[in-house]
Design a protein around this nucleic acid. Structure first.
Lengths: 217, 217
DNA sequence: GTCTATACAACGATAGAC
DNA sequence: GTCTATCGTTGTATAGAC
């Protein structure tokens, strides 16, 4: 791949991280990358196309480095811990910020929305596989919807990322609270067979009590 | 309050909802509000000041209409249900979208960040009070950090709001998954005194096992 | 592939008439 | 308080020399 192309992609990531989606103009990105402004249009055609490429390729690179860490995870609390590592490292590198900014910008741009969803799915899929593995023999496995829960967790992390930008202390307390919640889930996970059966029965009754959720499968 | 002032605030909310934070120029807002572009600067001094005012006042209005609904909530699953109502109604009105866009825009504007955090706290505080009330006599009350958990939940909702913009089906499945998770929490809540004591003991042991979380109080 | 120069649009903001 | 008119800036994008 051309050197200039890569410099522009890296420059786009850094510019979005430092100056937000709105501040990521062709001039600003080119200045960060140390190349001429016109090259943005030569290599990518438009600023949005550059941002799209930056979002997808940067995400692909980062997901790759996290795959083996996810494979090593053996319980939910460890998954949350990896999530927190990810949060810290990615914040420094600016890739989750890029994702959050892409999501915000994509709200009113259907074309951008499509590619943002694609990039986000690069994160969602391995996390979903990990959650499926961890919850395979859990007493709650047949009552929770793993694809949906995975998306809730990933979307929640993006929200936390944005929240940290306006209230760092609040975001830290939120992550700590989730860690404590992880302890609670761990306790449920560690239950003996008798208690598990009791929980299972209770869950089924509770399920019937309420109106059927839209996605029973 | 001046009619034009209010029209501009309403126009700002609607413009951000329809065209995003980046598309909310003085001209675009004024066109939506049906007033002259120069009046933005006469009444608010700058576009950012108008957006700030719109964010704060619109949030104040909406929070007011949700206070009594929160007071009527008696369990966590009902709180989640109110959250989902809020999500649906606010999405239609565009106020959560406004908040999400403010959060994204505030990432690289400290002044905006301050006011966005203020507006977000207008939501956080009543939710925190409600959670504190609901969890007062729960077996997990002394192991979870309510302020942190509240912030995690509120930030998570913002993330879901953004996620819905790029993947509506995924966001719906995420909300359904949270509803099912609510059933699980409900089961824990409904435990008898013996089981509660056992859980409490397990939680304390689990707490010691791990490194002390940063916020023990 | 990379540069300079530039056309053209949109923007924030202000001055001044009414 | 509201309008018109306008200035200066910034941004996207292209043409053409090298």
């Amino acid at each position: 791949m051309s050197d200039t192309r890569q410099r522009l992609i890296d420059g786009a990531v850094q510019t979005v991280r430092d100056h937000g989606f709105g501040g990521a103009s062709a001039r600003a990105i080119a200045a960060t990358a140390g190349v001429n402004q016109a090259l943005v249009f030569y290599h990518f055609g438009s600023v949005n196309e550059l941002l799209r490429a930056a979002c997808v390729t940067a995400t692909e690179e980062r997901v790759q480095t996290f795959l083996h860490r996810l494979d090593e995870v053996t319980d939910l609390r460890a998954l949350l811990s990896v999530g927190r590592e990810l949060h810290t490292e990615e914040r420094a590198l600016g890739h989750v910020t890029l994702m959050a900014q892409m999501l915000a910008g994509a709200q009113s741009d259907p074309n951008l929305a499509e590619w943002t969803a694609f990039a986000l799915n690069l994160w969602i899929e391995p996390v979903e596989r990990t959650m499926r593995r961890l919850l395979a023999d859990s007493p709650v496995a047949d009552v929770i919807d793993i694809p949906g829960l995975t998306r809730a967790v990933c979307a929640g992390f993006v929200g936390l990322e944005l929240f940290e930008g306006v209230d760092p202390a609040g975001a830290e307390s939120a992550l700590d609270a989730l860690d404590r919640l992880g302890a609670l889930v761990e306790v449920v996970e560690d239950m003996g067979p008798v208690a598990r059966r009791a929980l299972r029965a209770k869950l089924r009754r509770s399920e019937r009590k309420k109106g059927e959720p839209p996605r029973p499968g």
